[in-house]
């Protein structure tokens, strides 16, 4: 006891307490500095894309001068794209495929996850692990057998083929997220619902889906991002421009031979990136809550 009293009176301790504040200041400085560097690295490409998209072709081709300064800004590239029926066709194809895929994925994965997480049946553990393992098979490996399957169904060169194959990418991961989320819901909640008179479907719709909403939103965002940004499958399965989604439409139609319509390419890519950005901005809080579910729920 006397030893601690003595050391507390020593001047060294007060010095230490003073340094705590300066340590904190240092930590803040370092944090801000690294965040600024990271932000510059992350934001440079989209900013450069944006700058390129508002330049004329002549200005883009001009190698003199600072490429980060736009001398005569123009919205011509955007106007050309938005008035082009082909580009709008790509856009609607993407919207159609994505909405259908998100809907199909969520229905399948919520039902599957509920069954795997809550209805104890023989082999449910193995099945749950199996679902996740299928996610680990890369799509670059899968598109060859899938090509045969889609081909034999006569769905090559059709957006319906994409609606059929995208869920092979989205369902396993969404199911996995939802299993984790459902598993974090206390067991007594379904028992209370069972005693209150709910059947399995009522339990899912009236208890589990509302309670697991953050998880569902996280899974929805994932499915949305995957099917909106899919590249390998449409490249392999679609060759007719009228059936192409944005991702390959922009690339295949705006690069003609070795002529790159850079301004339109960048404008197209930015427009294509817009919907996911909007979705993320609105649902960001839910998304984070969903991904960290297991970590914080007691």
């Amino acid at each position: 006891m006397s030893a601690t009293t003595a050391s507390r009176d020593a001047p060294g301790i007060y010095h230490k307490a003073g340094s705590l504040r300066s340590e904190r200041r240092w930590a803040l400085w370092t944090a801000y500095a690294s965040l600024i560097v990271a932000a510059i690295i992350m934001l440079a490409p989209p900013v450069y894309m944006f700058l390129t998209s508002i330049k004329t072709s002549a200005e883009i081709a001009d190698l003199g001068g600072n490429p980060w300064i736009v001398r005569s800004p123009t919205l011509e590239n955007y106007r050309a794209l938005l008035s082009s029926p082909m580009f709008m066709g790509f856009f609607w194809n993407s919207v159609k495929v994505t909405l259908l895929v998100v809907a199909v994925s969520m229905v399948i994965s919520v039902l599957a996850a509920f069954a795997l997480a809550r209805m104890r049946f023989w082999g449910s553990q193995w099945l749950a692990t199996g679902v996740f393992l299928t996610y680990l098979v890369p799509d670059t490996l899968l598109f060859i057998p899938l090509y045969q399957i889609v081909g034999s169904l006569g769905l090559l060169n059709s957006t319906w083929g994409l609606v059929l194959v995208y869920p092979t990418l989205t369902v396993p991961f969404c199911t996995w997220i939802m299993i984790g989320y459902f598993a974090s819901i206390p067991k007594e909640l379904d028992e209370a619902a069972l005693i209150d008179g709910a059947n399995w479907m009522q339990m899912l719709v009236r208890i589990f889906i509302p309670v697991a909403l953050p998880g569902i939103i996280a899974a929805t965002i994932f499915a949305f991002t995957v099917s909106w940004a899919a590249f390998v499958y449409p490249t392999a399965f679609i060759t007719t421009p009228s059936e192409m989604p944005l991702t390959i439409g922009v690339v295949s139609q705006l690069i003609r031979g070795d002529t790159f319509a850079w301004g339109q390419l960048m404008a197209g890519a930015l427009l294509a990136a817009l919907p996911p950005v909007i979705v993320y901005v609105f649902l960001m809080d839910y998304y984070i809550a969903g991904l960290t579910a297991g970590a914080t729920k007691g």
């Binding site: 206390p186 007594e188 909640l189 028992e191 209370a192 619902a193 069972l194 005693i195 209150d196 008179g197 709910a198 059947n199 208890i207 509302p210 309670v211 909403l213």
Partner: peptide, 18 residues
């Protein structure tokens, strides 16, 4: 359970949070 006409109170209350 739903047809047994019983009601149960759980240790952790099991209230529907939403």
């Amino acid at each position: 359970p739903r047809d047994r006409d019983i009601a149960m109170v759980f240790q952790n209350y099991a209230l529907y949070p939403h």
